[in-house]
Design a protein around this nucleic acid. Structure first.
Lengths: 202, 202
DNA sequence: TCTGCAAATTGACAATGTCAATATTTGCTT
DNA sequence: AAGCAAATATTGACATTGTCAATTTGCAGA
């Protein structure tokens, strides 16, 4: 019998419990609030117990980030499947990122904190590349007459979404609509970016 | 006579010395390496001396960020003045950001770490808004037939540059040229974004 | 001169990540 | 079934860091 309701000395599935607690803490207290000790406490174990399941804080954060990339990818695939081929699919991709980021700002922030993540982790890199490839593939499959590189569009769109969200999450930008077209801002931005694909009807 | 060559007990211009040491440390050791104690040591004073000039670490980082925004603005104004009116001015703006970010990656990273900066600091907010306004004004002055909001273009360009640099500094992107047009990637991206202003010659 | 304020030092504390030593449990081997 | 090794958890410790309180030092103005 140990302190907190746990019946056995060994937890049973501490790794999972730590992971769950970590997500909850991240959501509620931010990256700074996600300390190893707080996670351990939330899971009802001693402050040094996590070392058996995550080598260090970096490893835990890396595991989280990898998972979040997977979540976004799942969401993106869903949204893109529902959209007609073409520009709408790219908007769907962007909206998956935006929806996820606005729903879970701290999770999204973590994804870009490379200083806190394990650069060498193949799982993380694969998850990220895999998401990027979704975008690339969609652009390649579009069959549109691109004025630039496919990569220019992929990098551009990725950058656009990333930057837009960075501003939104920093509070420097509020949800709004383009005054001229009435579209949501992020769609207007994407449309502007893709204008060299399909020029406006003069 | 105190420990390190300093002739007087009172430093004389410690604030400036701390600031200089802080920039050097930031450049060489990153944000994480920029500790109050390390800065104090580099300036040759005791670990608690900085409190007289910067209330806490956040205040120091805020002062730095404010200064860096000013540097970028200076650079942007220079570059834009050298460019012919129109799209080239927007490219110049972007290039000012990109040049600065690549030359001083850690300084640039700090600018977006709102979790480490003082949100309420008017100096910081003014410096940032002022830079953004440069971009906005240039777009407004262009006299081009915009398909979208001026703000859509401003937010879009800002986001584009921000996201692009985030990738570059994270090592997820290498300097390259658009394979189709031969332009540097960042120019291709900007050109694509502004295509809805001046459609390509079919 | 001397007195008060600004600036710097010293020493302390709490939070955190991490490690070593120890304790407990589980499951495999015989 | 018994015993043992590996896995897992606890306890205690330490270094780093930001911050604060108490004290010391020196400068400038009355």
């Amino acid at each position: 019998m140990t302190k907190r309701g746990r019946a056995t000395y060994h937890h049973g599935d501490l790794r999972q419990a730590l992971f769950t607690s970590a997500v909850a803490l991240l959501d509620s207290a931010g990256i700074a609030g996600l300390t190893i000790r707080a996670v351990a406490h939330a899971a009802g174990v001693s402050h040094a117990a996590p070392v058996n399941h995550f080598a260090d804080r970096r490893a835990l954060l890396t595991a989280l980030a990898t998972d979040f990339f997977g979540d976004i990818q799942t969401l993106a695939v869903e949204k893109m499947a529902d959209a007609p081929a073409g520009e709408a699919r790219l908007v769907a991709f962007a909206e998956a990122m935006i929806d996820y980021a606005l729903a879970h700002p701290n999770r999204f922030r973590l994804l870009w904190r490379r200083d806190l993540l394990d650069d060498a982790d193949t799982g993380l890199n694969t998850a990220m590349d895999s998401l990027y490839d979704r975008l690339l593939v969609e652009l390649q499959a579009g069959g549109w007459p691109l004025r630039f590189d496919v990569e220019t569009y992929a990098i551009g769109l990725w950058s656009l979404v990333h930057g837009y969200l960075s501003m939104r999450l920093d509070g420097n930008l509020v949800a709004a609509h383009d005054a001229r077209t009435g579209e949501p801002r992020h769609r207007a931005i994407i449309a502007a970016f893709l204008a060299s694909v399909a020029p406006p009807p003069t």
